[in-house]
Design a protein around this nucleic acid. Structure first.
Length: 874
RNA sequence: GGAGGCGUAGCUCAGCUGGUUAGAGCACCUGCCUUACAAGCAGGGGGUCACUGGUUCGAGUCCAGUCGUCUCCACCA
């Protein structure tokens, strides 16, 4: 043991420890009726993705909760897995195909292409898992799932069929968001809006009867190719008379009607709006009401289609330019204004999305939203922090139908077959051989696949075996906590909730723990394009995974973003090193081979045990409330301040002393407290704690499976601890006085302690000498006759004198004492005033009043001591 | 337009249901290599808790308003 390096080396330790856990099967869970279940399903990262800081934080939080519950005796399952991530993965493989072979997916064809994607998945799918392991993730890897594995596919198909049968899934032609780059439809949630500078063009549409014209304003002139009407408000005096007339669409020369619709706001813009039902959701609605023609002019790839006449084949933005030029040339352009407007972009490729009419599959949201709202409103599902419940309900209350079809190949192909004869849509759990309506055998399968989030939505139960009735499902569902970022509430959390309610008739989890984003040191979002991402693995390699974990969960509060500072990793690494060296110290001094407390405890032992016990209680309370950062900070303080800076120092005289019995008792308490704090800290810093645990006499078994500390009243000695703190206070006062005068520790002096609490000080003579740099300690009841030439330090319970004549300046000493005295008196006056206040004494809770009285008593004692010291100085 | 967060030490942030003299890390200053640890020890400086008003015996904490800042949702061409 004595050869342990002075500096903790996480790199070698972490690998070894993780392998040990795996080898011992410590992560493995089983349906165990004797234990209470606890479960977390991991938000599945993209199968071909790489671990980023967000994942690292997410995983750390989940791991802490899982380890905590596991140690508390729960059958704690953290179920891992990966997501097929439709668009993201397909794009990656297509890119690879293009770069290396110069091929597109169409060159390969669907089947061959999908084989490539599966190969890709096999090749890179393990990467993220290995990365999670490096972070210490204690998942039950044997239960790992993939959103496109057999079971999940079955769950998807079952859900699709059920919803279709209930009429909750339908196919229809509606305006959807289309990404011309990814060439697929998107859901509302997949569109990100950004303010972009643009223009508002005012265009004159001549009336057909030649009686004048009507001017419309638009931000998207290219869509005029698909205009099939102009709308004005029916109450608008300016335009009322035009309703029913027609006008001529410039450039196209189409005659289109002027209609009256409330949608058009009086006084806004020109008061007249061009209607493009095929490319604008509002126009589409208006078009339905007035039977306007739906003319699609923009093709899937973002170019103008055959309906665009002369403009056919132009890219939509080139077309815009050309149209404006032509309008101007032909005198239809009235004016152009600068205008900033919100443009929807694809959340994957950030190209502008094109709203267009398209036949797609939708989930009808209204009936599903009802239950999803109820379980959050009635508290069945709790959000932490609570404010996110509002975000959630707000969205759910206004949700539109969910477009679930994607024009991709990689994903769950929609289980629908179109009858070539009668056109009937056959939706079936097993592939049909003939049309259920007309019986013909010519069926064509729907090519589209489902939105990735459709399978993610089923994750909490599909991973546990649904639609089969499995024991695991019965045991662990509903899961305990869902841990995820606020950026994913709509995409995922909301959809898991309504899916769980619909398919399982039970909520998928009882608590949603929301965390924020990890940003860079300047507060910017970490992103590939900015190149400001910090690789968690690099940080883990440099400072240790434990340090990184601690960094990510301390000093921030749930739901708030945090900035990542490498310096903080350094600080946390230092903490690891502190623990390492404290353990090294204990081991170096250890002669005992078993962990157990002695019969007889010294005051300092009682103090540290009391502090430990208090810490245990508070940490558990905090963890139960998901105040993980607060819990971590308390453990940090206990270990560093109480255990290392005080307790270890306090035991040194005994460890180095002549009394073997006293030495052994000190060892016992040192070891006991060490073991307890290792357990306490283990969920947060699993590697270093396990490593040390394995090296010391422990309770047997791996730390990961040890019992988490519980509050133990028999190990709490508040009175003794308070008495002991009197001594600590005196030591601090002496140190402060010496530091003030720049006395180096090497200069020791006789220390006279005048106190009524002689016993407390006499008992501690040995360590007082050490900690207060004294050559000898004399405890007296009465002040010495002559204190001239002595430096003094005063607390409420003791007066300390150090004969250091050369350093004493009587006047300065007097002035200093007088200043302290004045200060204390001032405080006492405030205290008196407070206690004289009748309404305070009568209204404040007794405990608060008593605390104030105690404080007053302490001040009085301090004042008395200061006064006698002053008097003694003469 | 709607909703929400944030504003506390030089920097980054904690501070739970209102209750000692408002904390931490980093940075800074002073003194120390005191045989666990200089990635350390001891001591210290530094805050009108954005502003204004209110509730209360008592407000960083609760309420209202103001200013600044960030985010999400919706979106009128």
């Amino acid at each position: 043991m004595k050869d342990l390096p002075k500096v903790y080396e996480p790199q070698t330790v972490e690998k070894k420890i993780y392998a040990m856990w795996e080898e011992h099967g410590d992560f493995h869970t089983r349906v165990n009726p004797d234990k209470k279940p606890f479960s977390i399903v991991m938000p599945p990262p993209n199968v071909t993705g790489q671990l980023h800081m967000g994942h690292a934080m997410d995983a750390t939080l989940q791991d802490i909760l899982t380890r905590y519950k596991r140690m508390q005796g729960y059958e704690a399952l953290w179920l891992p897995g990966t997501d097929h991530a439709g668009i993201a993965t397909q794009i990656k493989v297509e890119e690879d195909l293009r770069v290396h072979e110069g091929l597109s997916r169409y060159d390969l064809g669907r089947e061959k292409f999908l084989e490539r994607v599966w190969d890709w998945k096999e090749k890179y799918g393990h990467r993220i898992v290995e990365q999670q392991k490096k972070m210490g993730a204690s998942c039950d890897w044997e239960r790992s799932r993939f959103t496109m594995d057999e079971g999940c596919s079955k769950a998807v198909r079952e859900t699709f069929c059920e919803l279709y049968e209930k009429g909750l899934i339908y196919k229809g032609s509606r305006i959807i968001n289309w990404c011309p780059h990814c060439l697929t439809a998107l859901s509302d949630a997949e569109v990100e809006y950004a303010d972009k500078p643009g223009h508002l063009w005012y265009i004159r549409y001549p009336l057909s009867d030649g009686s004048g014209d009507i001017t419309v304003a638009t931000t998207r002139p290219e869509t005029m190719l698909g205009d099939s009407g102009v709308a004005v408000n029916p109450e608008d005096e300016k335009f009322k008379h035009l309703i029913g007339k027609t006008c001529i669409l410039p450039l196209v020369n189409r005659e289109i009607p002027i209609i009256g619709d409330e949608y058009c706001e009086i006084g806004f813009g020109t008061g007249a709006v061009k209607m493009t039902p095929a490319h604008d959701p509002n126009d589409f609605e208006v078009g339905l009401r007035h039977n306007l023609e739906v003319i699609r002019v923009i093709a899937d790839d973002g170019t103008i289609n055959e309906n665009g006449g002369a403009y056919e084949g132009l890219d939509r933005y080139d077309c815009r330019k050309k149209i404006v030029e032509d309008l101007e040339a032909q005198g239809y352009l009235v004016k152009t204004e600068d205008y900033s407007h919100n443009v929807g972009t694809c959340y994957r490729c950030h190209n502008d999305v094109e709203p267009l009419i398209s036949a797609q599959w939708f989930v009808k949201m209204e009936p599903l939203a009802k239950e999803a709202l109820r379980v959050v409103n009635d508290g069945t599902i709790k959000f932490v922090p609570e404010r996110f419940a509002k975000t959630y309900t707000n969205w759910m209350e206004n949700v539109h139908d969910w477009c679930i079809s994607r024009q991709l190949w990689w994903g769950h192909q929609i289980p629908a077959w179109y009858c070539d004869e009668c056109g009937h849509i056959n939706v079936a759990r097993t592939d049909p051989v003939k049309c259920e309506k007309c019986g013909c055998a010519y069926l064509t399968r729907e090519e589209d696949v489902l939105d990735t989030w459709f399978s993610s939505a089923l994750w909490p139960f599909s991973t546990l075996g649904w639609p089969e009735k499995t024991e695991a499902l019965d045991y662990w569902y509903p899961t305990s906590v869902m841990v995820t970022g606020y950026d994913i509430i709509f995409f995922w959390v909301a959809r898991m909730i309504f899916s769980g309610m619909e398919q399982m008739k039970r909520e998928p989890f009882s608590t949603v723990l929301i965390h924020g984003l990890v940003r860079d040191s300047q507060g910017r979002k970490m992103s590939k394009s900015l190149g400001n991402g910090i690789d968690p693995l690099e940080m883990a390699e440099k400072y240790g995974a434990d340090a990184l974990r601690f960094n990510l969960i301390t000093g921030n509060s749930p739901g708030n973003d945090m900035r990542f500072y490498e310096e903080k990793c350094e600080a946390m690494r230092n903490f690891c090193n502190k623990i390492w060296n404290a353990s090294r110290f204990v081991m170096m001094n250890l002669s005992i081979t078993e962990n157990g407390l002695p019969e007889r405890l010294e005051p300092e032992d009682k103090w540290i045990l009391t502090r430990l016990n208090d810490t245990v209680r508070e940490v558990c309370e905090n963890l139960d409330k998901y105040e993980i950062g607060v819990a971590a900070a308390k453990i940090y303080d206990f270990i560093w301040d109480d255990y290392c800076d005080w307790y270890i120092e306090l035991t040194k005289p005994r460890l180095n002393g002549e009394d073997p019995d006293a030495k052994q008792r000190a060892e016992q308490v040192l070891l006991y407290v060490l073991c307890e704090f290792l357990k306490l800290l283990h969920p947060f810093m699993p590697f270093i704690t396990e490593e040390i645990w394995q090296a010391i006499p422990n309770d047997g078994g791996d730390l990961i499976l040890a019992s988490y500390p519980r509050y133990d009243e028999s190990l709490s000695f508040p009175e003794d601890a308070a008495d002991f703190e009197i001594v600590m206070e005196a030591i601090k006062a002496v140190r402060a006085r010496r530091a003030e005068m720049n006395v180096p520790p090497s200069r020791r002096s006789h220390l006279l302690i005048v106190t009524e609490r002689e016993a407390a000080f006499t008992q501690g003579e040995a360590y007082i000498r050490k900690l207060a740099y004294a050559s000898e300690v004399t405890v007296l009841r009465d002040s010495p006759a002559d204190t001239a030439g002595m430096v003094s330090a005063v607390t409420g319970q003791a007066k300390m004198y150090m004969p250091m004549a050369d350093l004493v300046d009587l006047d300065k000493e007097r002035a200093r004492l007088q200043k302290s005295l004045d200060n204390a008196k001032k405080q006492l006056a405030g205290q008196d005033a407070k206690l004289a206040n009748q309404s305070f004494v009568s209204r404040a809770p007794e405990a608060v009043v008593n605390a104030e009285r105690e404080k007053k008593a302490k001040l009085e004692a301090l004042i008395a001591n200061l006064e006698t010291s002053l008097r003694d100085l003469g």
